[in-house]
Design a binder for these strands. Structure first.
Lengths: 149, 149
DNA sequence: TCATGAGCTGATAATGATTCTCATTTGCAG
DNA sequence: CTGCAAATGAGAATCATTATCAGCTCATGA
């Protein structure tokens, strides 16, 4: 387990470094800390939430840096942007190629993740029909969870 | 055509009035103007854009009122909220039961609407699998349109 | 060795969409 | 009429995010 995590961390750190190099940017201690805290997390985080986690590791890191870094993580393909439409951008680690969408309870805000390759396929198809080259998508289903209904 | 439009307007106005009554609120001239301008439009509008349209009909109407009203329209089921993840809430008239999702070009921002009942069905299915009662969903596909690629 | 400069950082100001506040107005119920 | 609940417009407030800026770091080359 630890080995796997560590391997992911190393992979991700390399990937970030590579991405930074490509853009003429540098790997820094702050970016390292932010990456580590981010990868610890299971599920999604807002930049603000990540900022609070990061503070526990290094209180000197400013929130602007966290906002900047989390964008770099997204660019590098390490983070996936998730949007629930509440005006807050959330990010979640992208391990391997796994991908999923979200089901959100309108009452208690509880969230469930799911994957549906069939839907993915149909999305591809729709894009193709309209001559688009599909890059990404955003899908959130809203409903009432079993506990609330 | 005109008849159909007019019929929709009347239907929608009634629906709004009904919704307002249910909440102990009132139909007002301002709300009427905002509703009319909104229904004129083909496709989606931000509250800001709607505000500018409304000004042309009645410059005295304030933007706060437009923001408030557009929310009421959404509550009443007259408007559908569309979110492209760019921090601006957009709304579009909901005629009949027609529903569609969006395909957005990442370069030129051009938007195409599409409907895919198969996807809708699968979304229902996913919700059911997790015990959720599906209320709504948000799906936007991002890609590069034929002209840009 | 030391100067240089590109990039980085944190604090803070700025932005922009949206919401709130509040004094004033409107319009029906009694 | 009269009063009261709701509505309105103007502008302030909010909140997430982004821009600005002065100081810092560190590899490079003279």
């Amino acid at each position: 387990m630890i080995l796997i995590c560590r391997r992911y961390v190393i992979t991700h750190r390399n990937r970030l470094t590579e991405h930074l190099n490509k853009k003429g940017l540098k790997m820094t201690p702050q970016r390292g800390v932010i990456l580590d805290r981010f990868l610890d997390v299971e599920g999604h985080l807002s930049a603000e939430e990540l900022y609070h986690l990061v503070r526990q590791s290094d209180p000197a890191i400013g929130q602007a840096t966290v906002y900047r870094t989390v964008k770099l993580l997204a660019e590098a393909g390490i983070a996936k942007t998730v949007d629930f439409g509440d005006g807050v951008a959330r990010y979640e680690p992208r391990f391997g190629t796994s991908h999923h969408d979200h089901l959100v309870c309108k009452k208690c805000r509880r969230q469930v993740e799911f994957v549906d390759p069939e839907i993915e396929g149909l999305q591809e198809k729709q894009a193709r029909i309209h001559g688009f080259n599909l890059i990404s998508h955003r899908m959130v289903l809203f409903g009432i969870c079993p506990d609330c209904s």
